[in-house]
Nucleic acid binder design. Structure first.
Length: 184
DNA sequence: CGGGTTTGACCCGCGC
DNA sequence: GCGCGGGTCAAACCCG
């Protein structure tokens, strides 16, 4: 019963984008603030905020929430269950959705997939990725809405403590690419 | 041969 | 307590 109707090109992690998306954003920009204000122009990419559940607004959902600033000790929740401390300090998660044909967006980091689960009320599975950089425990999960199967929700958890692996150019190049895409 | 993906099992929190 | 659903592990598998 794991037949997921349409499985998107899941071969390579860095698929080529056939649709405008904000895939080139380094993740530390997400930690920034109003980067998205600039980007919302051509694409439907919105910031969802950091809810535990990524339930997406029914419409196009530009839920431009405020970003929590307590990334302070988000290094490890390596606490044993016996610890009576702050239990389960769930790292802040922040998500944004993108309109894209490809599931996994190339944000410049290197990810290793470590799980995939079927989501209730969703015909599409959710994929779990971890950053493969040593010592970096950033995770992300990618999910596609069954409502709008054009929408991909990417949820990041944690913050990278290292630069991107990719020589992904400067911001100007990113803008250039976006302009190319928006010629569609 | 090494690194990434697949996939079922396992774990754990939560609601009933 | 139990079952369900989300999240993770890890062994097998795949591919360059």
């Amino acid at each position: 019963m794991e037949n997921y109707p349409l499985r998107f090109p899941s071969q390579q992690p860095s698929a080529s984008f056939s649709t405008p998306c904000l895939s080139l954003l380094p993740a530390d920009m997400i930690g920034g603030t109003q980067v998205f204000d600039t980007l919302q122009g051509g694409n439907s990419a919105g910031f969802l905020g950091l809810k535990d559940e990524v339930e997406v607004p029914t419409s196009q959902g530009y839920g431009a929430y405020q970003l929590m600033e307590s990334f302070a000790g988000s290094r490890e929740n390596e606490e044993k269950p016996s610890k009576k401390k702050e239990k389960k300090v769930r790292k802040p998660r922040y998500a944004f959705q993108t309109r894209s044909q490809v599931d996994v967006l190339d944000d410049g980091y290197r990810w290793r997939k470590y799980g995939q689960k079927a989501v209730k009320n969703n015909r599409f599975p959710r994929s779990y990725y971890k950053c493969t950089h040593q010592g970096c425990s950033v995770k992300k999960q990618v999910q596609r809405l069954s409502r709008d199967e054009d929408i991909v929700v990417t949820t990041y958890e944690g913050v990278h403590t290292h630069p991107t692996e990719k020589p992904h150019d400067n911001f100007q190049d990113i803008l250039n690419q976006m302009q190319i895409y928006s010629n569609f």
